[in-house]
Amino acid sequence: MITAHSPRRGLFLGLAVTVGCLTGLALLAGSMYLLFYGSEGSCEENEAVERMAQVSAAAPAAPAGTTPVAERTSVECMDDSGDPWVAADSAYIHDVDAQSLVAHYWDTARKEGWKAVGTRAQAPDGFRSGLGMCFHKEVAGAPALLRVGADGPKEFTVTVESALDGSTISC
């Protein structure tokens, strides 16, 4: 028995194999992107700009007797680790004693819904350490972290941080 094949059969078979290979490559490329860059977004997206504004506005007000240091105040999005996060830093010089600064931020942060990590008795040591006093709360529905710490005898920094993917940043 002789079977006749259509001359188009080879063309359709070749086209099906090509489409299948291209689909497989597209799926592989998409998977590799998610593996290496994640799906949490990047600093170039509009969500990052919005989150920077939310995080920047979440910092408690500085006490009387402090002066902002403009060149050391910034809001930025960083994605060098593959897990983008936003940080709003405000630096100040002050003419008040460290104990007053600690009391101000402890009380103000708590009134604004920030939950302290540690106790009030530990706060002065945290303020003087390189890590600062640490608080956390949700800002616009996503976890954020507040750090307040000394940068020298008459300087301190207030930082609010938040991950773009909504994950928690620890102290």
Rank of each mutant, 00 (worst) to 15 (best):
G132Q: 02
P60H: 12
P68Y: 05
T18L: 14
T157D: 11
T66P: 02
C21E: 04
L145N: 01
A109F: 03
V148K: 02
G20L: 14
D79N: 12
P143V: 06
D107K: 13
E44H: 12
S42H: 07
A109R: 04
T18P: 02
T18I: 09
Y105F: 15
L146C: 00
S100K: 15
W85V: 01
V148E: 03
L34A: 14
A29S: 13
P7K: 11
D95C: 00
M52I: 07
L35M: 12
D165W: 11
E155T: 12
E40M: 07
W85F: 14
H94T: 15
H5E: 14
Y33V: 11
S170G: 10
V49L: 10
C134E: 01
L164S: 00
G130H: 08
G10T: 09
K137E: 06
G130L: 07
A163P: 03
D125A: 15
H94G: 03
R9N: 09
T168Q: 13
G130F: 09
K137Y: 03
G166D: 05
A116C: 09
S6T: 10
R147Y: 04
E76K: 14
F127L: 03
L164Q: 00
S74F: 10
I2K: 10
L22C: 09
L35I: 11
F156P: 01
M1V: 10
V17I: 15
A109T: 07
R147T: 12
N46Y: 04
V75R: 08
T73C: 05
V86E: 02
C21I: 15
A121P: 00
E40L: 06
A16L: 13
P84S: 06
G38C: 09
G141F: 11
S56V: 04
A91F: 03
G141V: 07
G10W: 09
E161V: 09
R128D: 10
P143R: 07
I169K: 09
D95T: 13
G41A: 06
G130C: 09
A98F: 00
V19E: 12
V17Q: 06
V148C: 07
L35G: 13
C171H: 04
